[in-house]
Computed example of a mutant assay.
Amino acid sequence: MTTSHHTATVKHIATQCGFDYCGIARAVPLDDDARRLETWLSKGMNGSMQYMENYFDLRVNPLKLVPGAQSVITLLLNYFPAKSSHPDTPKISRYAWGNDYHEVIRAKLKNFLQEMKAKIGEVNGRGFVDSAPVLERTWAQRSGLGWVGKNGNLINKQSGSFFFIATLIVDLELEYDDPVAKDYCGSCRKCIDACPTDAIQENRVIDGSKCISYFTIELKDMLIPGEMKGKFNNWMFGCDICQEVCPWNRFSTATHETAFEPIPEILNFDTQDWEDLTEESFKKIFKNSPLKRAKFNGIKRNLKFIQS
């Protein structure tokens, strides 16, 4: 089989596995990103997320993650829900309405690699989904799937930004897509102006240590800084403000992935239900949910904070 046939096979497998978009880039060290990441970390913008300082060399060089790596396959999976939550209840970021995407996408990536081996032959590779040292938004941009917006999210011109990004690094040469060279944010500042904690800075710099998602999910301290009082706009877990105001998300359509169907309680719980929730019920209802990351005590802390 030729490189062209291999590439067509990879794109077909992506569709078979349920991914919405597939792009491919040559596996090379990301020298520019290395410098940007180093500066970002040196300014402490990762807050208490110390894990972002780990495996620096691996983050910026796919050849150190997969020996002999030749191609980086980037896959997008839409998670935008068809339904809406009640506007007056504590808010949860849309990505967390259904089952934990890590589990859903890991299964798809495992199947993807198996299909590649079955249809192409021996292929060595590794799949990653945001919890590993991979700069997935850079690879998505390099493979033509979108550009990194002023809010730090990957934005796809046809479908907006409500996507999970998965990465598959393989030792197979493929045909490479043209990168997105243009920035389609233009002079728009909606996300910068709408962020209540000023986490979105100029020049596409996101201060992670100021983000509502950081405080409500990543921060393990039981005390959220007092200067953030009144700035969370009722967000209890994560935050979608910068995506909600983005004009490109007018093109968002409902996901076809059944695993991302909202857990009923996410849509139906009112504030009192959240206050009455016991740890036992939390573990039962949200056993497959990303809400587990904040844990029961974290959810209760966040609820108390947004109500005070």
Rank of each mutant, 00 (worst) to 15 (best):
H5T: 13
T9M: 13
K11T: 06
G18N: 07
G18K: 09
D20L: 08
G23M: 02
A25V: 12
A27E: 00
P29W: 12
A34D: 09
R35A: 13
N46T: 07
Q50V: 08
E53H: 14
N54D: 12
R59F: 01
L63Q: 11
V72P: 01
T74H: 09
N78D: 15
F80W: 14
P81N: 10
D88N: 15
T89M: 12
I92V: 15
G98R: 03
H102W: 02
H102N: 08
I105E: 11
A107M: 10
A107Y: 07
L109G: 00
N111P: 01
F112T: 03
M116H: 08
K117Q: 15
V123Y: 07
R126Q: 13
F128R: 00
V129E: 02
S131N: 13
E136T: 07
R137Q: 15
R142D: 09
W147K: 05
V148C: 10
N151R: 08
G152Y: 03
N156W: 02
K157P: 04
S159G: 14
S161D: 05
F162E: 00
F163M: 06
F163G: 01
A166K: 02
V170Q: 03
L174C: 13
K190N: 13
D193V: 14
C195L: 04
T197G: 02
T197V: 08
A199F: 10
Q201R: 15
N203L: 09
I206G: 02
S209Q: 06
S209N: 15
C211M: 06
I212N: 02
T216S: 13
T216D: 03
M222I: 07
M222S: 13
K229E: 15
C242D: 01
C242Y: 02
F251N: 14
F251G: 01
S252Q: 12
T253L: 08
T255E: 09
P262G: 08
I263M: 13
L277D: 02
L291T: 02
K292P: 00
N297S: 12
R301I: 10
N302A: 14
S308Y: 08
